[in-house]
Design a protein around this nucleic acid. Structure first.
Length: 157
DNA sequence: GCCAACGTTGGC
DNA sequence: GCCAACGTTGGC
């Protein structure tokens, strides 16, 4: 039986790393996630899964592109690095706490599908990212929501 | 820059 | 194991 492909949404501030950066670098290691729920979602990711690259704290905030999960999650090296902002003194090589995930560039959307649009369209009312107070940087997305966002990006706003 | 939401920490 | 204090996220 074929493995089910899953879909995700991953937030990042474009000032730090944007869809254009991913396009230029082709792939990246998504690290620095320090939230257990987000980490657990990373551990569920499988090669071939697709993700919506969401620009947060941006003007405008919204979905900017698509990436592909390239490999299963691995220990996040920054947790061992005392000089890193993401250093975690509780983590050891033998017992890592945090994971990172390799993400490849797939495409930049023709235009950003903004958070405002997603909130105004009742089709997306069950999406985690539009729900009030959701700060989680990684959330699962249904295939229907994923496809609908790509379709919206092909239409003028 | 404000602040609501909410996850984490640590004293008890 | 409770919960107050604190820190962070992220839209506005």
């Amino acid at each position: 039986m074929a493995t089910q492909r899953n879909y995700w949404l991953m937030k990042n501030e474009p000032e730090t790393f944007s869809i254009d950066d991913l396009k230029r670098e082709k792939k990246t290691i998504w690290d620095g996630i320090r939230n257990y729920q987000a980490r657990n979602y990373m551990r569920e990711m499988r090669p071939g899964d697709l993700m919506l690259f969401y620009h947060s704290s941006a003007d405008p905030s919204g979905v900017a592109g698509v990436g592909k999960i390239l490999a299963k999650s691995m220990p996040d090296e920054s947790q061992f690095n005392k000089k890193s902002d993401y250093y975690d003194p509780k983590a050891t090589k033998a017992k890592p706490i945090w994971d990172a995930i390799a993400v490849g560039f797939v495409k930049k959307l023709p235009r950003i599908v903004t958070l405002t649009e997603l909130k105004e369209d009742t089709r997306f009312k069950d999406m985690k990212v539009v729900q009030k107070g959701n700060r989680l940087s990684i959330t699962p997305v249904s295939e229907a929501h994923f496809q609908a966002i790509l379709e919206l990006s092909r239409q003028a706003q």
